[in-house]
Design a binder for these strands. Structure first.
Length: 498
RNA sequence: CGGGAAGUAGCGCAGCUUGGUAGCGCGCAGCGUUCGGGACGCUGAGGUCGCGGGUUCAAAUCCCGCCUUCCCGACCA
C-alpha cells in the first residue's frame, strides 16, 4: 500500500474530550473516528489492527476445536423474555420496534445459540460441541467512555460450549482457558486470570482475564506470595487470629432517636469519640438455603454477600417484625430463629456499638461471647488493600485493571430456561446440556493493547497486531529513475509474498 | 440517574467579566522558494459562535429553556 493512497487522517492535537492514552493515540494516528458517544468508525489502519486481532483469536479458537459461526444481531424479543433477561438486562438492551414486531439488538448470544443447538443437536454423539462467533454486539451503556474501551456498539468474540456432563464441561472450560492465555500472550498483554463473580450471566466457576491499566474500571485482589487473584466481587480474606483479651466494658443502652445507619450513630456519639470501625454493621440476607441470616462486619467495611445469597429488601421487613430497620443488632437475635454470621474481623476483642433491635435505641459495650454470639464465621467484606490472602494470609494488593475476557461455566442455567436445550444420552434418556461461554471484547482489546503499548511519541504495536510490518521510505524517487524503479519492484515483490 | 466541566473554522484555543457584525496556532488550497532527516514565504478558502426563545437600536457576549459531549460516581455478560 502506498501511503499516498492511504486514508490516514492524522491529528497534530488530540480532541479535547479524549482522555485515555489509547483513545487519544488511536484518534491522532487516524485509526478510528467517533460517530457519536460510544460509536466508532474504523479507518483503514484501525481495521487492519482489528483484523489482526480477530485472526489471532480465530487461529486459537480453531486450534482449540471450536467452529466459527455467524449469528443474527437482530433477535426477536420473545427469546429474551423466555430466558428472563429481557428483565434482568433491560437497562442495556437496545430495542427495535417495527411494524413487523419487537426486536432486540443482541447484546450477547446465549439465547440464540441455545435455541439453534437445542433444535439441531439431539444426541450425545454430537457432543462436545464448541461454537464461536466474532461480531458486533450492542449494549446501551449508560456511560460510554475511554474511546474503544467501553462503547455501545462493539465487536466481541463469544464461544459457547455444550457438553454431556459436568466433568466434560470442565474439560471444555480448561481448553478454552488455555486458548485465552495464548491469545493474550500473542497480544503481548500482561494479563492476569482472576477468579470472578458470575454476575447477571449466572453459573458457578468463572474467570475474568484482567489487564492492569491506569484507566481500568475494575480492581482485582492479588497475592504476590501465592498468586491468588480474584475480582472484588469474588475475593475473600483469611481468618487471622486475634489474641484473646478480656473486655470489661459495661453494656449500656442509649436513646438514639432518628439515628438509623452507621453514619448517623457516629455523628450522635462523636463527642465520645466513636468511629465507624467500632460499630457493627448489621445486614440481613437469605442464604443459599433461603434461611434468614444477620451478618456482622465492622462499620467501616463494605459488605460482600456470600455466594448464592439474596439481599434483604424493604418489603421483607414486613415478614420479620423483630428486625427493626436501622436499629438491628446482634444481641438477642439467636433466640429468634435468625442465624447470626460474622466477618472474621469481628473476632477482634473489643466493645462494639450496634443497634438494640428496638427503634431509636443502640447498645454500646457489646462484647462477643458475653452479649452476643456468632454461629458462623466467614469473609463478608469487600476486600481492601492489605487484607490477608485467603490461601496464605499474605497481604493482598488491589490492582486497577480492565476486563479483556471472561470465561464462564454456565452449567445448566440456560439449558433449563430455553426449551429443547437437551440431548439423548447413551441410555436413551433426555439430558440438559452442560454449557460454558467465553467472551473476549475484540474492539476493547485494541484499546487495551494501545494502553499497554505506547510511549510519549505514539503507538508501538506488537508485531502480530501492527497494521503494516514494514514501511519503506524511498529517498527522492522523482530525482532518480533508478530509485523509482527499484521501489516499484520492491512493492511488487512484497505484495506477491503477502 | 446524581455531582462537575465544556460546546466559537477540520483540530487546539482566545474573545464573553465591561454587548457594537469574530480572531490566533496548526491543518487545508494556490503560487513561489527550498528539499538526502518532520521546510519557508506570500495569497486564499473555510464559522447558522450547539439549538430555541427573551432583553436591547444592537447579542458569541446578558437572561430563560433545551440539546450534545467529556470527567467522577451509580451501573456494567
Amino acid at each position: 500500500m502506498r501511503m499516498s493512497k492511504l486514508l490516514l487522517p492524522t491529528l497534530r492535537e488530540a480532541p479535547a474530550d479524549a482522555e485515555a492514552a489509547s483513545h487519544r493515540l488511536l484518534l491522532r494516528a487516524g485509526f478510528i473516528r467517533r460517530l457519536t458517544s460510544g460509536v466508532y468508525s474504523f479507518l483503514p489502519l484501525g481495521l487492519k489492527v482489528l483484523s489482526n486481532i480477530e485472526n489471532i483469536i480465530r487461529q486459537e479458537m480453531d486450534k482449540a476445536g471450536a467452529e466459527e459461526i455467524l449469528l443474527p444481531a437482530l433477535h426477536p424479543l420473545e427469546i429474551w423474555q423466555q430466558s428472563g433477561r429481557a428483565q434482568t438486562m433491560k437497562d442495556v438492551l437496545m430495542k427495535v420496534e417495527t411494524t413487523s414486531g419487537s426486536f432486540v439488538l443482541g447484546p450477547t448470544h446465549e439465547e440464540v445459540i441455545t435455541a439453534i443447538v437445542g433444535a439441531e443437536v439431539n444426541s450425545y454423539k454430537e457432543l462436545p460441541l464448541n461454537l464461536y462467533q466474532i461480531q458486533t454486539k450492542f449494549r446501551d451503556e449508560p456511560r460510554a467512555r475511554f474511546g474503544l474501551m467501553r462503547t455501545k456498539e462493539f465487536i466481541m468474540k463469544d464461544a459457547y460450549s455444550f457438553d454431556a456432563s459436568q466433568e466434560e464441561m470442565g474439560s471444555s472450560y480448561q481448553t478454552m482457558y488455555d486458548a485465552y492465555c495464548k491469545i493474550f500472550e500473542r497480544c503481548d498483554l500482561s494479563y492476569q486470570p482472576v477468579e470472578a463473580d458470575a454476575g447477571a450471566i449466572g453459573g458457578k466457576v468463572n474467570h475474568e482475564f484482567m489487564v492492569p491499566s491506569q484507566i481500568g474500571e475494575d480492581h482485582f485482589a492479588s497475592c504476590a506470595n501465592c498468586r491468588y487473584s480474584a475480582n472484588l466481587e469474588a475475593a475473600t480474606k483469611a481468618d487471622i487470629g486475634f489474641e484473646s483479651k478480656s473486655i470489661d466494658q459495661e453494656l449500656k443502652e442509649h436513646f438514639t432517636p432518628d439515628r438509623p445507619g452507621i453514619d448517623l450513630v457516629v455523628e450522635h456519639f462523636k463527642e465520645q469519640g466513636l468511629v465507624a470501625k467500632d460499630m457493627l454493621k448489621c445486614f440481613v440476607f437469605f442464604d443459599s438455603n433461603n434461611k434468614i441470616n444477620v451478618g456482622l462486619v465492622p462499620g467501616d467495611r463494605q459488605v460482600r454477600l456470600p455466594k448464592g445469597s439474596r439481599g434483604f429488601e424493604e418489603k421483607d421487613f414486613l415478614d420479620y417484625p423483630d428486625l427493626v430497620k436501622g436499629y438491628i443488632g446482634p444481641k438477642g437475635l439467636n433466640t429468634k430463629d435468625i442465624k447470626v454470621v460474622a466477618d472474621y474481623s469481628v473476632k477482634e476483642p473489643k466493645a462494639w456499638v450496634s443497634g438494640a433491635n428496638k427503634k431509636n435505641y443502640h447498645y454500646s459495650g457489646l462484647v462477643l461471647g458475653r452479649d452476643f454470639s456468632v454461629e458462623n464465621w466467614d469473609s463478608l467484606t469487600v476486600v481492601e488493600q492489605g487484607d490477608p490472602c485467603p490461601r496464605c494470609s499474605s497481604p493482598l494488593v488491589l490492582v486497577r485493571s480492565v476486563e479483556a475476557g471472561h470465561t464462564f461455566q454456565l452449567g445448566l442455567t440456560y439449558s433449563k430456561l430455553i426449551p429443547g436445550a437437551s440431548f439423548t444420552d447413551a441410555q436413551g434418556k433426555e439430558q440438559l446440556y452442560w454449557m460454558g461461554c467465553y467472551g473476549i471484547g475484540v474492539t476493547r482489546l485494541i484499546a487495551i493493547i494501545a494502553e499497554e503499548h505506547h510511549d510519549d511519541k505514539g503507538l508501538i504495536w506488537p508485531k502480530e497486531i501492527a497494521p503494516y510490518a514494514i514501511h519503506i521510505i524511498s529517498l527522492n524517487p522523482h530525482k532518480s529513475s533508478e530509485v523509482n524503479l527499484f521501489l516499484n519492484n520492491f512493492i511488487k515483490i512484497y505484495l506477491q509474498l503477502g
